[in-house]
Design a protein around this nucleic acid. Structure first.
Lengths: 220, 220
DNA sequence: GTGTAAAGTGAGCTATTACTCATATTATAC
DNA sequence: GTATAATATGAGTAATAGCTCACTTTACAC
């Protein structure tokens, strides 16, 4: 079903009273719960309505179709994540290269630690093919990283700057993304960020970056 | 709808005559075509049978259920990929660290260049949650990389060897995987492998690795 | 209180799915 | 040729999906 990917027409009806706003929130919360706990297969509109304790009719009063529900869920999660990203980007502007890389990683880590399970499920949800959604973050990161790299061009030895940006952004994304399920401790302690920063800075500058003391945890 | 993941009981009937073996091949081919061209949503048993030009009855004569069909498709693709992997692993045994890394990348690149679209779709197919299938390759790569790293322990400055293996394998997988759609030229020319090798070796050894001439393409 | 619109209900429609089975066709064995 | 097993067929079934709509209940305006 939902073969022809109808896109999220705006809500059939905008909730006006507190009661209905609460209903919408309940529905969204139920949707998230089902996705996280039971996976996309179990994510049916009937089930969501049931779990939310409202009738399917109510659900379709605020969401024109299933995709719209998913969309709104993503929109809210995205919003939560991108909160504060501007400040970070600003901070990166006047920072040395190593710090730029560290900030990019830090931002990525933060993204993944806000409701990590939901984040993971959303990134694997079929209707958007994984391409549209997580790619949106990466894309934004890419352009910011590119700007930062151009400002520090002199320190970077990699000939093809686009390639450098590509390697850095995808490395960060993959390493962090998988760490949520495979190396959570290293993620939280900052050890992973430490390693990856060292690796990437070394790659970019062409100079060896001394490993910090392997002893106590790094910043953050 | 295939919620409770019944696993691939062996084919209901083993094809004995040439005619039926051809039927099976046709079905598998149609399955692959549909997956690649229309995505998993369109991958229904009825459609596969239709595209293959056989009746659904015939399909269910050789595949006990939908998952079994998918399984067999994966099995065949996997087989094509892992062909020759042993030789590579052997080659890595007596090679220097840089060469080990390069071989790991090379293997990964090869995996992704055999029917790349199919590879990508299979890695995103819902029933296996992406965890089971591609993870199988990565896992095998992980253990081989780990062995190789242990043999070269002296050259590696990273304190936590597991962490090093984790970073290297996931970096390789992500960078190569995405390059299929984003940087195919660099993938095929070897430029990407070049960059990533330099980065990873630098990371592992803690020493700067001079970039090769940015001019003509690298090995292979 | 009364009118009106917002909010909420849920049986049921339509479409589609994975899968079955009684039957027909083709090939091999002798 | 005839028997027997292999192969192929496709209308039909049960389940479940997304979604509708005629209707009831609740809240606000005056």
């Amino acid at each position: 079903m939902a073969r022809a990917k109808k896109m999220a027409a705006s809500p059939r009806k905008l909730p006006e009273q507190d009661r209905s706003r609460a209903t919408v929130d309940t529905i969204i919360a139920a949707a998230a719960r089902i996705l996280v706990r039971d996976g996309y297969d179990a994510f049916t509109t009937n089930r969501v309505a049931e779990k939310a304790g409202v009738s399917i009719g109510s659900l379709y009063q605020y969401f024109p179709n299933k995709d719209a529900l998913l969309s709104e869920l993503m929109r809210r999660h995205t919003h939560a994540i991108e909160d504060g990203i501007e400040a970070m980007a600003e901070r990166a502007k006047s920072a040395p290269l190593a710090e730029v890389v560290r900030i990019a990683i830090e931002h990525n880590v933060r993204s993944h630690l806000i409701d990590p399970e939901l984040h993971r499920v959303l990134s694997e949800v079929p209707p958007l093919g994984k391409l549209d959604w997580e790619a949106a973050f990466t894309e934004r990161m890419v352009s910011r990283v590119r700007d930062a790299f151009e400002a520090k061009r002199a320190e970077i030895v990699v000939a093809d700057l686009d390639l450098a940006v590509y390697v850095v952004t995808h490395t960060v994304e993959a390493v962090v993304h998988n760490a949520v399920t495979e190396r959570l401790a290293d993620l939280k302690s900052g050890a992973l960020a430490e390693e990856v920063t060292r690796m990437l800075v070394g790659y970019l500058t062409g100079k060896a970056v001394p490993a910090k003391r392997p002893s106590r945890a790094a910043a953050e």
